[in-house]
Computed example of a mutant assay.
Amino acid sequence: MALINLLDWREEARQQRQKEFFITLGLMALLAVAIMALVYWIMNNKIAGQEERNQYLTTEIRQLDRQIKEIDEIEKKLAELEQQMEVIQNLQRSRPEVVRLFDELVRSVPEGIHLNSLERKNDQNLTFVGRGETNTRISEFMRKMNSSERLKYKDLKEVEKERKGVPAQVFVLEALQVIPGATPAEDSNNQGGAK
């Protein structure tokens, strides 16, 4: 039988398989690097896209915040205008009341009473400072005030004799202005409206 040496052929086959293994290993490494680069590029694109959307949302939120601030300022101005309109309307409503008050005052002041000053507080509280010839005249003034439609006697603060000149009584009298037909809520609105 003849002896055949197969070692060379086996050695070559092993080297060929080893070469193919390293080539396959290199190709796999390249493929893994390519896949990682692709995943990295895709993720960076997604992150950049999300950052762009976030930037857009931030810009829109700032714009909406500015608009909200403008709306708040407009609402504040509107409230101020409504208050001013209410004050003007109250003044318009109360304008004829002053004339009526003085007309009623002329009817209520009896002969022998001289008013020196009239002070009006909170659109309702009136303070009269004057002189009366006698206490009876002052009492008559208070009674006429109570029977008046627009005046109500509240309090006689002070009465003292005048020392100089003609004998007379100096008095300080408080009263309320009444608006006929007005509800208490309207009276309080008129109080707060024009001061």
Rank of each mutant, 00 (worst) to 15 (best):
74 I>Y: 04
72 D>T: 04
59 T>A: 15
85 M>I: 15
84 Q>I: 08
74 I>C: 03
31 L>V: 07
58 T>F: 10
63 Q>L: 10
102 F>H: 04
37 A>G: 06
82 E>M: 00
74 I>E: 08
31 L>P: 00
39 V>C: 08
98 V>S: 08
52 E>Q: 06
72 D>Q: 08
64 L>E: 12
52 E>I: 02
31 L>A: 15
86 E>A: 11
88 I>E: 10
95 R>G: 11
53 R>E: 06
41 W>N: 13
36 M>L: 15
62 R>T: 05
42 I>N: 04
60 E>L: 07
99 V>Y: 10
68 I>R: 02
80 E>T: 09
45 N>G: 13
58 T>N: 13
76 K>L: 01
50 Q>A: 11
57 L>C: 03
66 R>W: 00
61 I>Y: 05
88 I>G: 02
89 Q>I: 12
57 L>W: 05
47 I>H: 06
50 Q>W: 09
40 Y>R: 04
82 E>G: 03
47 I>N: 06
45 N>R: 11
99 V>K: 10
30 L>N: 04
65 D>G: 07
40 Y>D: 00
42 I>Y: 03
87 V>F: 04
54 N>S: 08
68 I>Y: 01
33 V>Y: 07
80 E>M: 09
56 Y>F: 13
72 D>P: 05
92 Q>C: 07
34 A>R: 01
47 I>W: 01
54 N>H: 10
89 Q>C: 00
80 E>R: 04
33 V>R: 10
89 Q>R: 15
100 R>W: 15
49 G>T: 09
65 D>F: 11
51 E>Y: 05
77 K>C: 00
77 K>W: 00
84 Q>W: 09
80 E>G: 00
96 P>N: 04
96 P>F: 01
81 L>K: 05
85 M>G: 07
91 L>P: 08
55 Q>V: 00
59 T>W: 07
78 L>S: 08
76 K>R: 10
32 A>F: 01
96 P>D: 07
103 D>H: 08
99 V>E: 15
89 Q>W: 13
83 Q>L: 11
37 A>W: 00
77 K>Y: 00
100 R>Y: 15
88 I>A: 14
89 Q>S: 13
67 Q>P: 00
31 L>I: 04
64 L>K: 09
43 M>F: 11
33 V>A: 12
85 M>F: 04
55 Q>H: 09
69 K>P: 06
53 R>K: 13
100 R>A: 10
53 R>G: 03
34 A>Y: 01
31 L>M: 11
51 E>M: 10
82 E>A: 07
101 L>V: 09
50 Q>I: 06
84 Q>Y: 10
86 E>T: 15
100 R>D: 15
43 M>W: 09
51 E>G: 07
98 V>K: 03
77 K>A: 08
82 E>P: 04
70 E>F: 04
59 T>R: 07
76 K>S: 01
83 Q>H: 01
100 R>P: 13
98 V>P: 02
49 G>S: 10
68 I>S: 06
72 D>N: 08
92 Q>K: 11
96 P>M: 05
71 I>F: 08
79 A>E: 03
59 T>S: 14
